Simulated assay, not measured.
Amino acid sequence: MTGGVTIGQAAAFAGVTVKTVRHYHKHGLIDEPCRDSSGYRRYGSADLLRLIQIRTLAVAGVPLAEIGAILDADPDRFAAALVDVERRLNDRIDDLIARRDMLRRLATGDRALLPDRVLAKLDRVAADLGFTPDDVTMAREGLVLIKALVPEGFDDYVSRVERALGDPRYFSLVKRMWCAAEWEPDDPRVDELATAMADYFLAHPSLLPIPAGLQARTDAAIRYDLLRQHGQEQKPAWTRLAALFEARLRSAGIDLA
């Protein structure tokens, strides 16, 4: 070949680096031109056009492994290939938007880990119960644990609690339970509340807030214990309340886990 430009010049004209041009050669996207009498490879106008086409497709998001076939295809196959690439790019865009939205939700804490409908219900109930921000966080974390440990029973659990909260007596018990978090463990009101809670669920066993599917698992006791422990380190009275409540249910023949 007479004339032409060096690889460095071709790279500059095409808007890429020399390393990139060599990478294209390695992947078979463009043939290496012949050397001139001085031993230098010389790139002609056709080579430069090919480099520009490769760079454009690569920047558009076409994988290098597909660029050669696209450039060598007839016009119909070329158009169809670009449509397919566009579809995949749109899928990637949708995925990136979803990830961005997740990051934005995570900026508000663990709210991103629960469905919007559940968060809306929790916010309403928390307002009715007069929850503090810490109470709301603890309740939300408990729901996150249930969703992670018994995903198949999460919707059933939420539905049970929602139905129960429609009963003024249960609503009152829940309010007392959250107040009990500030009591001393040996406060006699703990024993009274455990009895009242047990009596309520013995009368309404279908509302017992145990996620569906939990008892069918071989490791049900481990999962139940993890759920049961939530919040008890910070609220010692809850530990005794839970123990008394469960003892009363078991003595009445209710198998918790």
Score class of each variant (00 low, 15 high):
Glu32Asp: 12
Thr20Ala: 15
Leu256Ser: 04
Gln229Ile: 14
Val5Tyr: 00
Gly253Glu: 07
Ser37Asp: 14
Asp156Gly: 06
Gly4Thr: 09
Glu86Asp: 15
Gln232Pro: 00
Ile30Ala: 05
Glu192Ser: 14
Tyr224Phe: 14
Ala220Gly: 01
Arg189Asn: 08
Gln234Met: 12
Met1Asp: 14
Arg99Ile: 09
Ala139Trp: 03
Thr195Asp: 15
Leu173Met: 11
Leu48Cys: 07
Asp155Gln: 10
Ala220Cys: 13
Pro151Gln: 09
Tyr24Met: 06
Leu29Trp: 08
Asp155Leu: 00
Asp191Leu: 09
Arg77Glu: 12
Glu141Pro: 04
Arg163Phe: 07
Gln229Asn: 14
Ile93Ala: 11
Ile146Trp: 00
Val16Gly: 05
Trp183Asn: 01
Lys121Tyr: 13
Ala12Leu: 11
Gln234Trp: 08
Gly39Asn: 10
Glu246Thr: 12
Arg223Cys: 10
Ala46Phe: 11
Gln232Cys: 14
Arg77Asn: 15
Glu32Arg: 15
Leu29Gly: 00
Gly213Val: 07
Arg50Asn: 03
Ala257Arg: 03
Tyr43His: 11
Arg228Asp: 01
Arg189Pro: 02
Leu145Gln: 00
Val161Ile: 15
Pro236Lys: 04
Val62Met: 10
Leu64Gln: 01
Gly142Ile: 06
Phe78Trp: 14
Ala237Glu: 00
Ala69Met: 08
Arg160Thr: 06
Leu29Glu: 05
Asp225Val: 10
Ala14Trp: 02
Ala148Pro: 04
Leu82His: 04
Glu162Trp: 12
Leu64Trp: 02
Val125Trp: 09
Ile210Trp: 06
Ile30Trp: 04
Leu119Phe: 00
Val136Asp: 09
Tyr224Lys: 05
Ser159Tyr: 04
Ala65His: 08
Asp155Lys: 02
Glu233Met: 12
Leu103Gln: 07
Ala216Trp: 05
Ala73Gly: 14
Val190Cys: 06
Arg250Met: 11
Ala247Cys: 13
Ala58Cys: 06
Asp225Pro: 00
Val161Cys: 05
Ala181Leu: 08
Glu32Gln: 12
Gly213Ile: 05
Asp95Arg: 13
Ile52Trp: 02
Val125Gln: 10
Asp74Thr: 10
Arg176Asn: 06
Ala73Lys: 03
Ala203Asn: 09
Ala69Leu: 08
Glu152Trp: 03
Asp199Ala: 14
Arg228Trp: 00
Gly109Trp: 10
Leu49Ile: 07
Arg88Val: 05
Lys147Gln: 15
Leu256Asn: 01
Tyr43Trp: 13
His27Cys: 12
Ser37His: 15
Arg160Leu: 11
Gly15Arg: 13
Ser251Tyr: 01
Asp155Ile: 01
Leu129Gln: 02
Phe171Ala: 15
Phe245Ile: 05
Ala252Met: 11
Asp199Pro: 11
Phe13Thr: 09
Pro151His: 06
Gln229Met: 13
Leu122Ser: 07
Leu82Asn: 00
Ala98Met: 10
Ala80Thr: 12
Pro236Phe: 09
Arg217Asp: 04
Leu249Glu: 05
Tyr157Pro: 02
Ala257Tyr: 10
Leu193Arg: 00
Arg41Gly: 02
Lys175Ser: 15
Arg99Val: 07
Leu249Cys: 11
Gln53Pro: 03
Ala58Thr: 09
Arg169Asp: 14
Val21Gln: 01
Arg223Gly: 03
Asp74Trp: 08
His27Gln: 14
Leu145Ala: 08
Tyr170Cys: 06
Met177Pro: 02
Gln232Ser: 11
Arg124Cys: 04
Ala73Pro: 04
Gly44His: 08
Arg217Leu: 10
Ala164Tyr: 05
Ile146His: 01
Leu51Cys: 05
Asp110His: 13
Arg163Lys: 15
